[in-house]
Nucleic acid binder design. Structure first.
Length: 422
RNA sequence: GUGGGUAUAGUCAAGUGGUUAAGACACAGGGUUGUGGCUCCUGCAUUCGUGGGUUCGAUCCCCAUUACCCACCCCA
């Protein structure tokens, strides 16, 4: 019996890693367009950070964190999300005294103890952006636009942007009260999970999938009718900005974030094609978080985007996924002196940034060609005693089977020409 | 945490209460005196996730256990 990777984790194998590199590269390009610069924070933090940031009563903090005491007795937690650590770094390094708005992006692994299923892992990866220091709804729109542009750049279709305003602490409290009083005499008829939600997060009942709850919820007060003047104006601003950017959205009052720190803007980008966990990107505004972490009162907005879910979508469309890279050249050799000849040649070609492979398995010529075919090399150079003796090397084009003969002196320039380089 | 499903080679997979567990792909070698896409040949599971039980006999029936998958919950 071997040892498996821990439950809920996945190896990213050489045959897949180029896809990750592709989305990483694309994300860097898109965020650069919007002026985000990368931040790298530790993979673990003091547990207290997430208790304060994410919220003591959230599922994440209550039962999903990978926490442990280190040998010095400090309680440590593997990042369950990306925002709180960025805020911590922002406050600790006093970046609020620097140029504002503070705009940053990150690409990180996150860890949550959950039961794995399609699109949900215990170690998963997020790309995210954050903007600190502005209340302007253009920031929210730019955050959303960054995510939308990124997904468009990857040619991922069939996605829906859903936006909502969950208000500020003041109007949300008023709304919660009215919602709870609306549901009060219906409480006994709620499903079991909604009975729990009634006290913990009553807004989520609106989103319940059970038919009974759906019926009970008809005619319930809507958040958007309760948000205060300021929040309402902000939401209108957001919609106006999205319109100006020609970004389609639907207002969905069911969007509720599971992390305590969100205020006003909440949004999700969802797919219906990757199973039950269809939220590819989720984010919103958090105007009180930075203060909660101990910084000066500073508003913020950002998103997190799940890479595994993104890759599920990319894998559904062969046209999106880039091709696995293939080497330019394979050097097939026969015999010991040819092998040595090939080694010398390989050094020269690789120094010219030509990617190439040699036979590392002492295989016969036929097997070497089979291998060259499998790795989809563009050209194969054939070297045997005969070629060395006559100074006539063979360059074979693997796609059309054509062979040309060149002298050693002309090989490099000919090869560069064939590869379309100068 | 609660449900449901599946476990036979590297992969996909057929199979029956009873001698040597199909097949395909992949992989390796060869037919071709030095050349890959096709073709042909050869090799590749003393064993059916693991542990018990029923039985004269179990890959097949029963129980347990583990792993993976899916859904709820929640979220990215």
């Amino acid at each position: 019996m071997g040892i498996n990777a821990p439950k809920g984790t996945k190896d990213i194998l050489p045959s897949q890693s180029y896809k990750w590199q592709f989305v990483e590269k694309t994300f860097k390009e898109i965020t650069a367009r919007y002026g985000f610069k990368e931040i790298r924070t530790p993979i673990f933090e003091y547990t207290e950070l997430f208790k304060r940031g994410v919220g003591d009563t959230t599922d994440i903090v209550e039962k999903q964190m990978y926490s442990f005491d280190d040998y010095g007795g400090r309680n440590i937690t593997l990042k369950p999300e990306g925002t709180a650590p960025v805020v911590r770094a922002f406050v600790e390094n006093k970046l609020y005294a620097d140029v504002l708005p503070f705009k940053t992006f990150y690409m990180i692994p996150c860890f949550r103890y959950e039961k794995p299923q399609a699109g949900r892992l215990r170690e998963f990866h997020q790309f995210g952006v954050e903007i600190f220091g502005t209340m302007d709804m253009l920031a929210d729109a730019e955050v959303i636009a960054t995510a939308v542009d990124f997904l468009n750049e990857l040619k991922i279709n069939d996605l829906e942007l859903r936006i909502n305003s969950i208000g500020c602490p003041l109007c949300r409290e008023a709304y919660k009260e009215s919602l709870m009083s609306f549901l009060k005499d219906k409480y006994e008829d709620l499903c079991d999970t909604c009975k729990g939600r009634y006290f913990k997060n009553p807004m989520r009942i609106l989103d319940c999938k059970s038919v009974e709850c759906q019926k009970l919820v008809v005619g319930a007060p809507r958040m958007l009718d309760y948000i205060c003047e300021e929040c309402s104006t902000a939401f209108d601003d957001l919609k106006k900005n999205l319109d100006l950017m020609k970004i389609d959205y639907i207002v969905d009052s069911g969007i509720v974030r599971g992390l305590d720190y969100y205020t006003k803007t909440a949004f999700e980008i969802v797919s219906n094609n990757i199973g039950a966990q269809g939220t590819v990107c989720g984010g919103g505004r958090y105007d009180n978080l930075i203060e909660q972490i101990g910084g000066p009162a500073t508003p913020g907005v950002g998103f997190g985007l799940g890479i595994e879910r993104l890759l599920l979508l990319i894998d559904q469309n062969d046209e999106i996924a880039p091709k696995s890279p293939a080497p330019d050249v394979y050097i097939a050799t026969m015999g010991e002196s040819a092998k040595e000849y090939g080694i010398t040649l390989s050094k020269e070609l690789r120094d010219l940034d030509i990617s190439l492979e040699l036979d590392l398995m002492s295989r016969n010529i036929k097997s070497q060609f089979k291998y060259a075919d499998k790795i989809q090399t563009v050209f194969t150079i054939v070297i045997g005693d005969e070629e060395i003796e006559n100074n006539k090397l063979i360059i074979k084009n693997m796609s059309n089977f054509e062979q040309i003969v060149v002298s050693r002196e002309d090989l490099v320039s000919k090869l560069m020409e064939l590869l379309g380089r100068n």
